[in-house]
Lab assay of single mutants.
Amino acid sequence: ETGKELVLALYDYQEKSPREVTMKKGDILTLLNSTNKDWWKVEVNDRQGFVPAAYVKKL
């Protein structure tokens, strides 16, 4: 879809709370919100949640 910003997972991340999502290094995720410098909201496999901003980079 146009207008979607994507990020690349630089590291594996295992969710530690229900508000977070698990990702694997190399995953491409849809970026939903990056206003917080530490935690970015992403969508992966129809799930939305937060990942550490340092673990992903914008494509």
Rank of each mutant, 00 (worst) to 15 (best):
E1W: 03
E1G: 14
E1A: 14
T2E: 14
T2H: 14
T2L: 12
T2S: 14
K4S: 10
K4I: 13
E5Y: 11
E5N: 10
E5D: 11
L6G: 04
L6V: 08
V7D: 00
L8D: 01
A9M: 02
A9R: 00
L10V: 07
L10E: 04
Y11P: 00
D12T: 05
D12A: 06
D12C: 06
Y13H: 04
Y13R: 02
Q14T: 14
E15N: 06
K16F: 05
K16Q: 14
S17N: 13
S17E: 09
P18I: 09
P18R: 09
P18H: 10
R19T: 12
E20N: 06
E20C: 07
E20G: 12
E20S: 06
T22F: 04
T22R: 05
T22I: 03
M23A: 02
K24P: 01
K25V: 07
K25M: 08
G26S: 03
G26P: 00
G26N: 06
D27A: 07
D27I: 04
D27Y: 05
I28S: 03
I28W: 05
I28K: 06
L29N: 01
L29Y: 09
L29Q: 01
L29C: 10
T30N: 08
T30G: 09
T30Q: 10
L31I: 05
S34C: 12
S34H: 08
T35R: 09
T35P: 04
N36D: 15
K37C: 10
K37D: 11
K37W: 07
D38P: 02
D38H: 15
D38S: 09
D38F: 15
W39V: 03
W40F: 08
W40K: 01
W40D: 00
K41H: 12
K41F: 15
K41Y: 15
K41Q: 12
V42Y: 01
E43L: 08
E43M: 11
V44W: 08
V44H: 15
N45G: 15
N45P: 13
R47W: 04
R47N: 06
R47V: 07
G49M: 05
G49Y: 05
F50A: 03
F50P: 00
V51I: 09
V51P: 00
P52E: 02
P52Q: 02
P52W: 03
Y55D: 05
Y55E: 04
V56H: 01
K57D: 08
K58I: 14
K58T: 09
L59I: 14
L59N: 04
L59A: 05
